[in-house]
């Protein structure tokens, strides 16, 4: 069996040699490589016309030996020249300059024809690669182990101005947003000042007191004080609610007498149907005085 295979190879070898014109491996240099270097090798195969490299016979990227990886394989054809660009990477940590053998590999050339295809094996020969150590094996003795390390490189000097300006700008924008939020939520210092309900009433009453006396004016004056009381109480205040109101707002207790007279007069004016009688009991000036006293108490409170 083995004899038969040897015979077959001999028969096939004859024409194959005839079809191959030459194989050449070219390397930029065969020495001076360090750990991790990429090695570019170019294999040129000169063949008979019509032949092409069989893609499946090309070497696969991956580890070649324990110290060498094949990183990339590219092929091109120039007429009858078939060119392989091979990129190796060496991982050999040499401790002295030495030459290592890069193994060769087989390729197959094929030519297709109507009555079948012809193949021709090509043996790419191995080649040697000169590898060198990165540094001496035994460095000079140092007192401080830290001296074995190279000093850190100087960092580039950065310009702080743009970053500072951006921080300032964003800070100002943040404060502005906070102010707007505080205003929206009525936080300090935007807390709404308590409405000066009685101050408005006192102003209105003073304005009416300056004008001519009339029933409508008198009613309007009473209404102004009513609205002030409503605003202060938070709801509509009727005469019977006066005690309740004064219990809730002790600041106005001093005006109990005046308020009681005001409510009595207001009842007569609006519901008793006698503005004249109401005015006799409580002239508008007196209502104005009560409103002023209430406004003063309101400011003090």
């Amino acid at each position: 069996m083995r004899l038969a295979l040897a015979l077959l190879l001999t028969v096939l070898a004859g024409p194959a040699v005839a079809q191959l014109r030459g194989v050449e491996v070219r390397v930029p240099r065969t020495f001076g490589y360090f750990l991790g270097d990429l090695v570019e090798a170019t294999v040129a195969v000169e063949a008979e016309p019509g032949f092409a490299l069989q893609a499946s016979s090309l070497p696969q990227a991956g580890p070649v030996t324990y110290w060498l990886d094949l990183r990339r394989v590219e092929t091109r054809q120039e007429g009858t020249r078939h060119i392989l660009h091979l990129t190796y990477q060496t991982f050999y940590a040499a401790i002295d300059a030495r030459s290592l053998e890069v193994p060769g590999f087989p390729l197959v050339l094929t030519r297709g024809a109507d009555h079948g295809s012809t193949t021709a094996p090509v043996e790419v020969p191995g080649w040697s690669l000169g590898l060198s150590p990165l540094r001496e094996v035994q460095p000079a003795r140092r007192a401080d182990p830290a001296d074995y390390l190279r000093p850190d490189g100087l960092g580039p000097r950065l310009d702080p101005i743009p970053a500072r300006n951006a921080a300032l700008g964003l800070g100002v924008a943040g404060l502005l947003a906070l102010v707007l939020l505080a205003r929206d939520r009525a936080w300090w210092p935007f807390r709404p000042r308590p409405a000066r309900a009685f101050a408005d009433a006192a102003r209105r009453l003073a304005a009416l007191a300056r004008g001519p006396e009339s029933e409508a004016g008198y009613r309007e004056g009473l209404l102004a004080l009513h609205r002030g009381l409503d605003a202060k109480a938070g709801h509509r205040l009727l005469a019977d609610d006066l005690d309740d109101f004064l219990a809730r707002h002790p600041a106005f207790r001093a005006q109990r007498e005046g308020l009681a007279r005001f409510f009595a007069a207001s009842r007569i004016a609006f519901f008793g149907g006698s503005v004249a009688e109401a005015r006799d009991r409580l002239p508008l000036a007196e209502a104005g005085a009560t409103a002023r006293a209430l406004a003063a108490a309101e400011r003090a409170a």
Binding site: L222, H226, R227, H235, R236, L238, F271
Partner: peptide, 8 residues
Amino acid sequence: VFETVPAP
């Protein structure tokens, strides 16, 4: 209703 409607 009584807290809302003004009187007088």
